[in-house]
């Protein structure tokens, strides 16, 4: 089948959040082009363990592009070179024999490195906790069909809700802004009738929490949208800004 690849990986190694990190080179020979990028790291880790070295720490779980665990910059791009694709679904046939590939963690003050490629993204959870929900207790819901929602609105709400919370948007933004992540949730609820009663408080709280976590501001460069593996649109940021303005002016 396809030809095997010989590659050099330049991987960021950092023992803990307060230690100094650096790139380490690893040469990989005879790489099967059908491997996923994370399987490449698996193979390298097996080798490192056998050689008595510490394997590379990286987050991963579902390996189907939906859990949002995997998070790494590949040649400077969040999740690597293929659009709408997470690192776990990036396959090696997109690379060429002889390539040197640089792998590093998300770079953002609000995502401190835990070890190697694994970063702490709990700031995202705290932003959701600040208001990314509809306050409805179990058992108090009306019939599912009691509130009709037109198909187009439901589709738009879904498009915003498809965010997997991986943090690629923050990583690719020169300001380390979390605007795409935060706006996707605000936008999902702003489109739905269920989200209306708490809309004002939601946008104020979530934006305040985003600032408190130390994420930067949005300057509309669009890097977030370009690297988002789930194609979350920047239109959501406009929606967030509009909702924010409405909330502070009313």
């Amino acid at each position: 089948m396809s030809n095997k690849l010989n590659l050099t990986l330049k991987v960021w190694r950092q023992e803990s959040s307060d230690s100094h990190g650096d790139f380490v080179d690893y040469s990989m020979e005879g790489v099967n082009p059908h491997m996923s990028f994370l399987e490449l790291l698996d193979v390298l880790n097996e080798r490192l363990i056998t050689e008595g070295m510490d394997p590379i720490a990286f987050e991963h779980d579902c390996r189907e592009g939906i859990c949002g665990s995997c998070a790494m910059s590949i040649n400077g791009e969040a999740h690597g070179p293929v659009k709408s694709t997470t690192a776990c679904q990036l396959h090696m046939f997109h690379f060429n024999d002889g390539d040197t590939i640089t792998v590093e963690p998300w770079r953002a003050k609000s995502f401190p490195v835990i070890k190697d490629l694994a970063v702490d993204r709990s700031a995202f959870d705290r932003i959701i906790q600040s208001g990314g929900y509809v306050s409805v207790n179990t058992g108090s819901a009306p019939d599912g069909n009691a509130i009709p929602i037109d198909k187009e609105t439901a589709t738009m709400a879904f498009d915003a809700a498809a965010c997997i919370g991986c943090g690629a948007c923050v990583s690719s933004c020169k300001n380390s802004s979390a605007s795409l992540f935060v706006s996707a949730k605000i936008s999902q609820f702003s489109k739905l009738p269920q989200g209306q009663p708490e809309q004002k408080q939601r946008v104020l709280s979530m934006v305040a929490q985003m600032d408190k976590e130390g994420f930067g501001h949005c300057t509309n460069t669009g890097a977030c949208e370009a690297t988002c593996p789930k194609d979350i649109s920047m239109d959501n940021i406009s929606t967030m800004n509009k909702e924010y303005l409405k909330a502070i002016l009313s």
Partner: peptide, 23 residues
């Protein structure tokens, strides 16, 4: 099972809908 759908809709889960707005 029916209560689950009601609960999820109330939380803002964007289920697929018909043109008339029903689930």
């Amino acid at each position: 099972s029916g209560n689950i759908i009601d609960q999820c809709v109330a939380q803002g889960v964007p289920f697929a809908r018909e043109y008339g707005g029903t689930l």
